[in-house]
Structure formats: C-alpha cells, structure tokens
Design a binder for these strands. Structure first.
Lengths: 373, 373
DNA sequence: ATCCACGGCGAGAGCGCTCTCTCGGCGCCG
DNA sequence: CGGCGCCGAGAGAGCGCTCTCGCCGTGGAT
C-alpha cells in the first residue's frame, strides 16, 4: 500500500525547504527571480522527496499539455508493410523528447474513426498534431483543420493550397494534367494557419532516377506508377514526365506500390513494349515485382532492362536479385523536421516571434546505386 | 481569436441545462442516478455547446489518466526492419481506443535513455505501461518494475519469475541447459504485481515446424538460431531441441535474425554438414539469407533442402524464391491481448474483483505452407 | 537622511472537474 | 394517516498547480 502513499506535492517541498509554494514553483520552472541560496535549498528538497510535478494540475492552469498527437490515417495496408512510419516515428520521438513533449499516438481504424480523432484533437488534449494522411480523398486533413489545432502534415496533402515549393519546378507538363486526379479544395483554415507539411522531394528524386537511366544510354524508359490517389505517386510520375517529356504514353503503366502490382504492370509493359530497356518503378516493392517478372521472362537485369526503385527500403532493396538501385529519402530526418516545425509553431503561439510563418519543407533525396541500374 | 474563446466548461453546460454542475458531471460520466428528463436536457446542452470534458481537470481529482504508455526499447535494429511493432501497435491501439484510453508512445534512444522513461512512468502520468524489451540484459524492465506501475510485457522478459506456462512443455531437455544464457533474477516487485506478459508460442511453433520437416522424411535437420540474447530465439531453439533430442550439435548454428546472419550460418552449415536436407531458421529474414546461399550453391529448394522460417513476415515470405513456408503468429492479436490484460488490471485496481490475478498469455502459432518445405 | 524604485518572496485566488455530504421530496410500511 | 427510509439533486470542498498581487527590504538618487 505504500505505493499508494501519494507522491509529494509542491506544498510538501515548500514545507521541507521552508519557503512558499510559489517559490518552489518558480524554481521548478527554471528558477528565474529566485536567489541562489534558496534555489539550492529547494532543489535539495525536490531531490530528497523525489518530487515530480503533477502534469494534470499544471495543464489545468497553463492550458498547455506538452504533448503532441501523431495521427496515422493509413487504412491498413502500407503502414504495416514497410518501416516508413516506424522511422518517422523515431525521428519525431527524438525531437519531441528533446523538448520534453510527449507523443500521443492515434491510429485510425477505418473511415468512421476519423470523427473520433477529430473530436480528440478538437478536445484540446494536446497542443498540436502531426498528421500522416497520404490519400487525396481522405477527409481527415479537412476535419483536423476544422479542429483549429496547429498541425504539420507528413507528405503533401492533396489540396490546392499545398502545392510544391519552387524547388521542384513546374507542376505540369504540356498537355498532360500534372496534378492530382481528385485534388479537392483546401478546407477553410480556422486559425490553424496555412498548410504546413514535410515531404521528400519525390519529383526531384524521380527526375534524378530517370536521368540516371538516360545517362546509361537507355531510350525506352518505362514508369510503373504508384497508387495515383497519393501525392507521392503523382509527384514521382511528374518527375518522370519532367525528363521524358515526349515519352511514349504506353511506357507509363499504373501500379499500386505493391509487389503484385509491380508484376502486373511489368507484364503489361513487356506485352505492350517488348523493346523496353529500363524501368523506373515508383517504389522498391513494385520494383521487386517487376524484377521477378523480368527474370521469369528471361530478361537480364541490368543488361537487357535496367531497373530503379524508390524509397531504399533496405529489407527489399538489398535482398533483391540483383540488388536494387533506388532513391533514398531520409525518413527519420523528415520526422524530426515535422516535430521541429510544429514545436516552433507552438512556441510562437506563446508570443515569441509572431513574424516569419513556418513553411513547408521538401527534403532532398539521393540516388543509391546498386546492381540493377 | 474566436478560436481562443475557451471551450465551454461544466459550469456552462449546467447553466444552460438549468441544473447543477454535479448533475452534469453525473450525466457525462454515465448518467447513473439521474432521472431521464434531466439526462435528456443535459445531453442536449452538451451537444449544443460542443462540450468536451477537460481531461486535466478530471485527472487532477480522479488520479486516473485513461492513458497508458507503450515503451519500445529496441535499440534501432529490429523495430524498423520489420512490421512487428507496427502490427502490435495497431492491436494495442484498437483495444485502448475501445476503452477510451490514450496511447502514449515512448521510444528509447540508447541506453542512457532508460532513466528518462523510468522517471516518466514513475511520475504518474499514465495509468499503466505496455513494455517491449526483447533483450535479456536490458535493465529497463527492472527499472519499470521499480516504478511500481502496472505493466504488461510484450514477449517473455528474461528473468526467472517469468517462465513459460505449462502449455509449452518441459523447459529443459536432458543435459542441455534449455533456458537463457544470461537470465537475471526478477527485480523486486513493488506492488506492481507479478510479471505478466504476452508472447507467442515460440517453442510450440518451432516444434511444429520441425515436426513438419520430420514428416517430410528429412533426417538431417538443421537450425539457424536467432540472436540468443532474446527469449524468442532461445525458445525457438528449445522447440527445435524438443523434437530433435539427439540432434547432431553441428546442425545448430547461431544466427542473429538478419539476412546476412542467415547467409553466414547457411554457409557454415553447408561446410560442416554437406548432407543437410532441411533447415529451420529462427525467422524469415535469416531464412531468406539461407535461401540465397542454397540457390547460389546449386541446392534446390525444397527438393534438396527444405527450408522453414518463422514470423510469416509477408513482405519477405511471399517474395522469396521459392515462397517461404513459415510459422505465423497473430501479432495484432497479441497487441490487443496485452492491452486487454493491462486494462483489466487497472480496472481491478479501482476495486472490482481483487481475486483472480491476471496471468501471462501465450498465443498459438500456425504453420503456413508455401513452397519451400 | 529621506524617498522612490525595484527585485525577491509570500499570500491567495482560481483552473475545471469529481465526490461527499446534505437536504428535500416521495413512496411505503405499520 | 404518520413516520421512516431512500432516491434524486444541489452545495461546496478540494485535487496540485501557476500567476497575479502586494509587501518588504535593499540600494541608489536627491
């Protein structure tokens, strides 16, 4: 039962140190305006009693929580197939920890669950939110903005307010609509500020991959797209088009980020264009599917057909035969950036530096050369 | 600024409904002991004002937080290589959500970080903890038990109090020490109750895999172990030994759960015992490494050498050549179970049913037959 | 020497909720 | 028909903290 012997309060510390509650509070929160000898006395008392501030009581008056929600709205599939979110979480966790913030994880279980998440965020239990929602038609981002809570998105959300910053060049290539098939208008911002997101340079990375293939002397370069309801897939396709402006449209075939989709697409590709001599797949998973079909059909990689993936998902890229050349993104760093952006925004709220609105960040990618191209 | 117009309080709802704060509180918390007409009036007021209870204020008086911590103490490697934790998190999240509990995620960043986590848990910010710590020499479980907070472990922790329940048969095979190389004594329980964990039936699953190989008529069956500082690896080894009591010791070779480790082990195996006709690898990753070496050395799978893995990690098992026969565990269900066990324990705390201490659970595994065995 | 300014510290008022205690009203038993 | 018990509702006391105020002591200016 001694476990139930409730933990010491400010009062107790004050008594032991022979000062008032207010003074202990001051010391605990930085110690400004308290003279050295007292600070020392209070510190000792805190130490001796093993005092830990009661966060609930503190929040009650400050209205801050030092907690941030991380919302992952991926319907099953992708989250659990690759370490993407795990790595982002790690980055986020590091940054939050460094600033004494807690991470509250919210996973949505199907569409109906969005309301629950929105309610939670609007309920003022956390100071801000980091939101992953990769699908263009996902209502969640809208709901969240409606909740009026500072938010940073992971990956570019699919509305028009959130177009790519300059770094990535023109958004459309002649004749072909470059952007999302189903982009919908930005939800009204209700004091939550402009849309801020962190995304990797999908378009630039795609360009680099395709240019590499061009540099290899390939001329019949194909693209297996990702699921085109996700901005990352759209951006990678745009990057492909940036370089292959006059590409044979039959060389672009729709995949879905899965190995099976990659297989299907590769079959179709070989069928339509037997002379294909290179493939840029929208991710490593579909590249691995393509690889399998190529092998099965007796095409040598990279001699006959060069293959490049995207993501540098080690568990796949290093294990394929041959090992996969691919585009790497620093996923953990992206997570860290998201957290940093959000925290900065929260800081500002408390009246720091009202100027200089935080802005979206696009992180660079690098081409990792292995054997497949 | 209207966003800052602080959210309505109980007081406001009470005023609008024309009742007292206490009554509103009762309704919000289930509505027992309030007559129907009033309940209805209050509900409407809540609805109209968009009232959401202030969790901080509530916690302050109830000393409950309706939040549990999930601690993942994996030093880098495994967490982010496979979807294991992601799936567990999903299961946990589902169960917690169903009971209106929040999930606070704590990832440790290196050894020095354990103290931080322990302090947080001891600080009474959450009602309980779900802890993943797979390494036998990890100090964290000890620290956490010291914190005196109700805890359920994911995977059997490596101390003696936490031996496998009956379901799994004898813990040792004649002559050979069956248990952990470095098991250390259970930390003193300080009111946190006995060690409770959820683990899959590693040992039983291993037995089933090996028996399957025996049933195939294989006689020279080898085992590539996992990293033996983890109980799962030890248990799988024990399961192997249960069936192969008189196994040639050279047929057991140490791996580390990685593809590279699998390759290394397989080479050594072929070197030592060229007549090997089956391999049970401690997980799919090392099985995939083994598979590659076998192919490279011209052994046909499964004709010459049958191979079985463990985990049914789809991204690997379905993509190997040939697809991998393996042992599946219901990882999401394990997560759900962990959460359920913890919540039940927390319930009990509030004086429900002091009898019947919750006990560890070992979840069943199933053999998934594909082409490799 | 007197006054004022200022910095250090204590007193006390809540933050929004829960929960106990009390009181009033009604049904029921004798 | 009167009293007792019980149920439904309100009043009010905190939970542990922060923060504003005001007091007091010190030091510099006059």
């Amino acid at each position: 039962m001694s476990e139930t012997a409730s933990r010491p309060t400010l009062e107790a510390v004050a008594a032991r140190a022979g000062v008032s509650r207010a003074t202990v509070s001051r010391v605990v929160n930085g110690g400004d305006g308290v003279r050295e000898p007292l600070v020392e006395r209070v510190r000792r008392a805190v130490e001796e009693l093993g005092y830990v501030p009661n966060q609930a009581a503190r929040s009650l008056v400050t209205k801050r929580h030092d907690a941030v929600a991380v919302v992952i709205a991926e319907p099953e599939t992708r989250v659990f197939a690759d370490p993407f979110f795990a790595l982002q979480l790690r980055g986020i966790s590091k940054e939050l920890t460094a600033h004494d913030n807690q991470l509250v994880l919210l996973l949505t279980e199907g569409r109906d669950d969005h309301a629950r998440v929105a309610r939670y965020l609007a309920g003022g239990h956390v100071d801000g939110a980091l939101v992953f929602s990769l699908h263009l038609d996902d209502p969640l981002p809208g709901l969240i903005r409606g909740a009026g809570i500072p938010t940073v998105f992971g990956g570019r959300p699919g509305w028009s307010d959130a177009t790519l910053p300059g770094a990535s060049g023109p958004a459309a290539v002649e004749g072909i609509p470059a952007t999302a098939p189903a982009a919908y208008p930005a939800p009204a911002a209700s004091g939550a500020g402009p849309t801020v997101y962190v995304d990797s340079d999908n378009r630039g990375g795609a360009r680099e991959a395709v240019r590499h293939l061009v540099g290899l002397g390939r001329t019949r370069i194909a693209h297996i797209t990702g699921a085109l309801d996700q901005t990352s897939a759209v951006d990678r396709l745009d990057g492909f088009r940036d370089v292959m402006r006059d590409a044979d449209p039959r060389l672009i075939v729709e995949g879905d980020f899965t190995p099976a989709g990659g297989e299907r697409a590769m079959r179709e590709l070989l069928d339509r264009c037997p002379d294909v001599d290179a493939v840029f797949a929208a991710n490593d998973l579909s590249a691995s599917g393509a690889l399998r079909v190529l092998r099965e059909q007796g095409r040598r990689v990279p001699e006959d057909v060069a293959v490049i993936g995207f993501d540098d998902m080690l568990i796949v890229a290093e294990q394929t035969d041959p090992p996969l050349t691919t585009v790497r993104q620093d996923i953990e760093e992206m997570g860290r950036l998201m957290a940093r952006l959000l925290l900065r925004r929260l800081d500002r709220r408390t009246g720091h530096d009202p100027a200089e609105a935080p802005t979206s960040v696009v992180t660079p990618t690098t081409l990792v050369r292995r054997a497949s191209a």
